[in-house]
Design a protein around this nucleic acid. Structure first.
Length: 582
RNA sequence: GCGCCCGUAGCUCAAUUGGAUAGAGCACCUGACUACGGAUCAGGAGGUUUGAGGUUCGAAUCCUCACGGGCGCGCCA
């Protein structure tokens, strides 16, 4: 049950009765939301202000008519016009009791919606080059993408989590050559790693595995043949490395899409270019010298094959074929996104790092072109994460191959804290990640704070079992608890927070902003801790009342609802909800 | 030079996507432990939302221009 959605439909039908001429487009702009200031009421709507102008009426006049209408609604105890034409509602306790019952009935599904209507959405995230282990820079996008995927799935979308493997570029040749050196090293040679090669020692085991499998036979082979073998082996090894890094954060993709499979004669890129040509989206032309960017001085004015990206909102048209005749990275990417579209995805989301912000427009142009505007592409940019320790920037070693890795971070602070902290911030602003803070078990640390709230619900049940050993508080018993006994404003306020969960999820899913889930869960934890502490001042507010088992049961139902919603939120975030903290 | 993102309390961040008096935590000050684990809570103080215009019933949010910070710019990937 979503109280806000319920009243949104009541407001809409009231308007239809009062002003039949109001159209659907206008109704769609009406929102029913909690007022910023709780003193204004439980619900607030802008309906009168939205509708007044097109009707040629005064907002307060419309508001007054609506207020009259809602005076007959049994669920409303107070309704009034405020400010320029807001309508504020105060709801009857019975509504909040219904919310509590619906949480008990729906359990893990409380908050789940059919917003997406089962439509397929492709979410591509991480897509780090398969040339080594994941470093900390990849971590934010990985967590963001994975959480967004869970959020969308929870909101009724058919989600595919996808990873694009950039295994076709020249960096892979370099990777293969670097691995070849490690292979020679495994055979006993003394090696020196030239600059430009990958120096990381994660390639050592790959070289050893090649020795174990081939002995020294690779040295005797013609180079192209040996390179092909090494490339296959090292790519597979790097992919396993990345998968195991991601697994540390419980991140698992459904599809690993190889760029290599797009290349080759008659491959997707060939077919895509052919298709683009048939739609007149490709031409031969010249590109302007990049302003201020031609640092190498290797710009050469020549005629080349260009994609009409400007027709789809990009700043300039983009090259598809390099001077050596091979395809550009972007050409492959167009083919890749056409592939996504042909697989049935009309909604695509790409999660990229800040260093790819310049790529957004052309990516969106590509999707518009290959789908003839039938598909949409949202690109979410995750800004940089600055590692901190005790308020000081965490200095990373400049020695290459010695970056802070994802695995380092998880080992240091754990998967839960890593995930939660990275989601406790909008994605489009840079953030500080303080190692020391995340390990503290205090109020300062939001991960701990939320998990403690969850653990506290369990301690309350444990205590209830001790104080009222005869009381049955199984799930079945809680479902038939006398919820009506819950009447104090402190308790009802807590239910009000619980009632906001469904609309929080929906709004977050529409905006593609999973961080809102983290903030909501934190708010709920605060409300719960606050209520808990009231029991210290006022014994009557304690959850367990030995003299009144029925009231106790009703309050345990409230505690259980809080527990359930925290779990629902943490599940989307991919953070565990422990029963007790050590 | 151009594009994208950001600029909110001393610090780290929110703000229901255009809503009412801009809110939390930290730090600072004051209070609450014979305890449903106080690993918490209640309260105080702290703001010209970088600046200047504009749009409208209404702006931190949208538009324009400055200023400051970050990331980019190509036939790289």
């Amino acid at each position: 049950m979503d109280v806000f959605a319920l009243f949104a439909s009541r407001v809409a039908s009231a308007l239809k009765v009062l002003y039949p001429e109001v159209g659907a487009d206008l109704l769609a702009r009406i929102v029913v939301e909690p007022p910023r200031d709780a003193a204004h009421g439980d619900l607030s709507t802008n309906a009168a202000m939205v509708v007044a102008k097109p009707l040629g009426k005064n907002p307060r006049e419309v508001a007054t008519a609506l207020v009259e209408h809602f005076k007959h609604d049994a669920d409303v105890t107070l309704v009034e016009v405020a400010g320029p034409g807001f309508i504020n509602f105060r709801l009857a306790d019975a509504i909040w009791h219904q919310v509590l019952r619906s949480i008990a009935a729906q359990g893990a599904d409380y908050g789940r919606s059919n917003l997406g209507g089962g439509e397929a959405v492709n979410i591509e995230y991480v897509s780090a080059n398969p040339t080594g282990p994941m470093h900390v820079g990849h971590t934010r996008g990985a967590v963001f993408g994975d959480t967004l995927a869970s959020l969308m799935a929870y909101s009724g979308y058919e989600v595919t989590r996808e990873y694009y493997i950039n295994d076709a570029g020249s960096q892979i040749d370099t990777l293969a050559r670097s691995t070849m050196l490690r292979y020679r090293e495994a055979l006993g040679e003394t090696i020196e790693i030239p600059s430009g090669f990958y120096p990381g020692d994660y390639l050592v085991p790959v070289g050893q595995a090649l020795k174990a499998e081939y002995g020294d036979k690779l040295l005797a082979m013609p180079e192209p043949e040996a390179t092909a073998i090494v490339k296959d082996r090292v790519l597979a090894a790097m992919l396993e490395l990345i998968k195991s890094d991601l697994a540390l954060l419980n991140i698992h993709h459904d599809v690993f899409f190889s760029e290599r499979q797009l290349h080759g004669q008659g491959g997707d890129i060939d077919l895509t270019l052919e298709w683009l040509r048939s739609k007149d989206m490709v031409y031969q032309g010249h590109l302007e010298r990049p302003k201020g960017g031609d640092t190498d001085g290797d710009y050469e004015d020549r005629e080349q094959t260009l994609f009409r990206a400007t027709n789809f909102g990009d700043d300039v048209d983009r090259a598809l074929i390099k001077s050596d005749g091979s395809y550009t990275y972007f050409a492959a990417d167009i083919a890749y996104h056409r592939n996504k579209f042909l697989r049935g995805f009309k909604h695509m989301i790409n999660v990229l790092g800040a260093d790819h912000s310049g790529y957004v427009k052309r990516l969106q142009a590509a999707v518009k072109a290959v789908s003839l505007n039938a598909a949409d592409m949202d690109v979410r940019i995750c800004q940089l994460v600055r590692l901190m320790k005790n308020g000081e920037p965490f200095k990373m070693s400049k020695r290459s191959g010695d970056l802070v890795t994802l695995a380092d971070v998880v080992e240091e602070v754990g998967a839960d804290a890593t995930r939660f902290m990275l989601m406790f911030r909008r994605n489009d602003a840079s953030m500080d990640f303080d190692f020391a803070l995340v390990k503290e078990q205090t109020r300062d640390n939001p991960v701990f704070y939320v998990q403690y709230a969850h653990a506290r619900t369990f301690s309350i049940f444990r205590n209830a079992g001790k104080e009222l050993p005869a009381l049955d508080f199984s799930a079945e018993a809680l479902k038939v608890a006398e919820i009506e006994r819950i009447v104090t404003s402190a308790e009802l306020d807590l239910i009000r927070v619980l009632a906001a969960w469904p609309r929080t999820v929906t709004a977050a899913a529409i905006a593609h902003e999973p961080h809102r889930i983290a903030f909501y869960v934190h708010d709920l934890a605060a409300a719960f801790h606050g209520f808990w502490a009231k029991g210290k001042d006022d014994v009557q507010l304690r959850f367990v009342n030995v003299e009144d088992p029925k009231l106790t049961l009703a309050r345990l139902a409230l505690v259980n609802a809080v527990r359930q919603v925290i779990v629902n939120g943490l599940t989307i975030l991919g953070v565990s909800a422990p029963d007790e903290l050590s």
